[in-house]
Design a protein around this nucleic acid. Sequence first.
DNA 1: CTACTAATGATGGACTCCTTAATAACTCTC
DNA 2: GAGAGTTATTAAGGAGTCCATCATTAGTAG
Lengths: 398, 398
Amino acid sequence: MSRMPPQGGDLSRLRQLNALSLIKVLRGAEAATLSALAGRTGLSRPSTKEVIDELTGLGWVEEVPPAPGTMGRPARRYRFRADGGHLMGVDVGAHNVRAALADLDGNVVAETRRRTRPDAPVADRLAAIEQAAAACLDLGGLTMADLWTVAVGTTGLVTPEGRVIMSASVPAWRDLDLAGLLGGMFPCRVLVENDSRLAALAETRRGVARNARDVVFLHIGRRMGTGLIIDGRLHRGFGAAAGEIVMLPEAHWVTAPDDLADPAVVPTGVPPEDAAGFTLAAARNNDPAALEAVGRFADKLSIGTAAAILLLDPEIVVLGGGFSRSADVLLPLLRSRLERVCLRMPELRASTLGDECVVLGAIDYAIEHLDRLFFAPDAPVLRPPVRPAVSTAVPDPA
Amino acid sequence: MSRMPPQGGDLSRLRQLNALSLIKVLRGAEAATLSALAGRTGLSRPSTKEVIDELTGLGWVEEVPPAPGTMGRPARRYRFRADGGHLMGVDVGAHNVRAALADLDGNVVAETRRRTRPDAPVADRLAAIEQAAAACLDLGGLTMADLWTVAVGTTGLVTPEGRVIMSASVPAWRDLDLAGLLGGMFPCRVLVENDSRLAALAETRRGVARNARDVVFLHIGRRMGTGLIIDGRLHRGFGAAAGEIVMLPEAHWVTAPDDLADPAVVPTGVPPEDAAGFTLAAARNNDPAALEAVGRFADKLSIGTAAAILLLDPEIVVLGGGFSRSADVLLPLLRSRLERVCLRMPELRASTLGDECVVLGAIDYAIEHLDRLFFAPDAPVLRPPVRPAVSTAVPDPA
DNA sequence: CTACTAATGATGGACTCCTTAATAACTCTC
DNA sequence: GAGAGTTATTAAGGAGTCCATCATTAGTAG
């Protein structure tokens, strides 16, 4: 009957649970005193001390100077050593490859970008990834050996095993064992996931949808995409094909972006990648033809979005992707259309993370992967912070 | 960050975890020997014995005669006392009210049904519920006081608090505090949930979708409905309005059933409730007009279904509801339409639970509620099997 | 310098689990 | 039907983890 928290066991298991619970409390928080930690874990002071000592010895926790100016004897303070390990997020797009290096708390330490062309051959794009990663490590003063996990977000359909089936925006990205190829590039576990899904994750972890349990993320741009967070977790589906509402014929999402590149609105000479921006700007200035074009786009956008809202009843819908820079124009149009259809209207917000959305999501995804490794019920024995072994076996027990 | 299994604590907490883990192993399984239990929980034999003794003392577990004919000394055998408590599932429909009494393993002990009319006033339908429940208890030789939880599935939109906003098939069911009204009828916790959702739950727990993690359940009948199981759990959504794809205008689900009552196919004189059955039977016999009508229905059905599949990528789609009795006609039509659109085609099966679907789902829902109560991380202290207190407070921490 | 405050460190007791070894109950073979 | 073989039960000793309590320590306030 469903997955089960109540995992008892040995005495040492209890100690381990308490240690993990302590790490959990320390994570992300500022330095804390023993009393505070004892209060938050429910353990007694002496036990907390003992566990903290063990964790300090292992290198998970470090002591920081006591806070001055308090009454009584100054309390020793401890904090989680987020620099005990590092992970990397990579965003592989049609025009850019981004890499970001982060510590175990998800704080970005260094960031790089390499340009590529949509029609670049596979080898070139892989080289760009390698260069971006190497430069990023350099900037952060680290080496490959310091990486615990790499998570990669890419355009296209990604299988649970990390193969790219095909990508509309990167023609060469087709039936490609990306996880395998990158597995040879990095000496650690490499996770590959669809970019829209990772963007959705970033928005729920640190963006406008922070702390929401059910989120629909819409990537609206020259290519459309969706990412779903359900019950606080990234939803992949049985064959990792979730979120592909783009393919619903009745929603016309495949051709919808063309509405914003209507020759009746956009003068010849405007490069294709700026056409939508032009139309949206014109609509902002009440150009009638542009308004009509944007209206057509919003009509189509609203169909797929309504389907997602009616099915999932999310707390919030987040708009990301290139077009979301003109959310001031799009949001009201979308909202009015959705209100006609939706039983319960969710919050509707534009992304604030912008271009970094996918790399940040990749980092958050890597962190969740590590959390699963460390907090799993069938637990890792308490051990010093070292890079987890590269288990090429199971892709990801969700 | 996310909900956390690693909940450590006291020594007694460890004992409790082990006891719960033991109950979990015993649940649903046949009687087992100590060695078997020790093996499955990971505990040592002496510890297992001690915990079992405690649970036996509390009344959760009972000893059964040893299995004869084995080598060596016969092992004592223990089993979970499923009759330690009872719960009731109720299905409130337009034409029928069903009630079923079950033990803690979900085995149905007794079952009753009362007829009502769709236009019956609220008081009449409530009386039918009370009568069905009373008769059911009688049949099972129990009283109200033996009930731990009652779960009710009803047509219509149900809020997280158990109010019925409105129901298309039961006009009187409108802005009604059903949970409150029934709370006065039963001396225990009463849960109210949409019937299609409960049917979806039953199919995943004991029907054709057994053990699937992601399931889309389609209720197809004179009223359409959906229930979603995501990651093994019933998905309700932020405002408990999930699964209402019926409302998507482009899918035409509201009028779709009318296709099967086309006057060009159904002779006058056939009562409205049999019209669809007539059309489907005619289609089975290759009546051209009927085939066309069923084709139109399948077209509409496939739109909403495709939306759900593309978004969620379920492992399996289950067809339930009245029309699913003609699944042999409908399934192939639906499948061929979906195959044109879906990226990954899920399994497509007809329900086998039939009319009992909702009551069984209600029972499973009640069991999950109890499981949450007993296995929650902030745990109940180990206690004898008694009916949990009626906490009118929190509706349901999903 | 003294009183007050709050954290630290050390001791003893309680509880849970494990390992090991002796005992008990039943089947099978001769 | 007695003895060998097999498996479960029972009991005792040991180790690990947590808690409560109390004397001690290192600051601030007046």
